[in-house]
Computed example of a mutant assay.
Amino acid sequence: MFTTYRRRWQLSRVRPGDGSPLPPFRLWQLFTRSVFAVDLPGHDGGRFEVDLRPGADGSTSRSPASLYRNGV
């Protein structure tokens, strides 16, 4: 019961993307931002990037995590 409620709550927080490109990673963002990338083999061979901002919370306008596919 609790896991079902938690999963619904998590899915309600997911927002569709706006098509913006992945911002470039700058050296001075070393402690406030992380970018992870993985190339997945498959029928379309997409590249997925995750932009993590550990300092972002409910009081900031940025999401704590953003998922990009092929840089968008």
Rank of each mutant, 00 (worst) to 15 (best):
M1K: 07
M1R: 11
F2L: 07
F2A: 15
T3I: 01
T4G: 11
T4I: 07
Y5I: 10
Y5A: 15
R6L: 12
R7Y: 01
R7Q: 08
R8I: 01
W9E: 13
W9I: 02
W9G: 03
Q10L: 09
Q10P: 02
Q10Y: 09
L11P: 00
L11G: 10
L11T: 07
L11Q: 15
V14C: 04
V14Q: 13
R15G: 03
P16V: 03
P16A: 08
P16S: 12
P16C: 02
P16I: 02
P16W: 07
G17C: 04
G17P: 07
G17L: 05
D18M: 02
D18L: 05
G19R: 07
G19K: 05
S20C: 02
S20Q: 14
S20D: 12
P21G: 14
L22W: 11
L22K: 10
P23I: 02
P23L: 04
P23T: 06
P23G: 08
P24A: 13
P24Y: 04
P24R: 13
P24F: 04
F25T: 10
F25V: 06
F25E: 12
L27W: 06
L27G: 00
L27E: 14
L27Y: 08
L27K: 12
Q29N: 12
Q29I: 00
Q29D: 14
T32E: 14
T32Y: 09
T32F: 08
R33Y: 06
R33E: 14
R33G: 05
S34R: 15
V35A: 05
V35S: 06
F36G: 10
F36M: 04
A37M: 06
V38M: 10
D39A: 14
D39N: 10
D39V: 02
D39P: 00
L40H: 09
P41H: 03
P41N: 10
G42S: 01
G42W: 00
G42V: 03
G42E: 09
G42A: 05
H43K: 10
G45D: 13
E49F: 00
E49Q: 13
V50L: 14
V50K: 07
D51E: 15
D51P: 04
R53Q: 11
R53M: 05
P54G: 13
P54R: 10
P54C: 05
G55L: 11
G55Y: 12
G55C: 06
A56P: 04
D57M: 01
G58K: 07
S59Q: 11
S59C: 03
T60W: 02
R62K: 08
S63Y: 11
S63E: 13
P64D: 10
P64E: 08
P64V: 04
A65W: 10
A65N: 02
A65K: 07
A65D: 02
S66E: 13
S66T: 12
S66C: 10
S66K: 11
L67C: 03
L67K: 08
Y68T: 06
Y68D: 05
R69Y: 06
R69G: 01
R69S: 00
R69M: 02
R69C: 02
N70R: 06
G71R: 09
V72P: 05
V72T: 15
V72R: 15
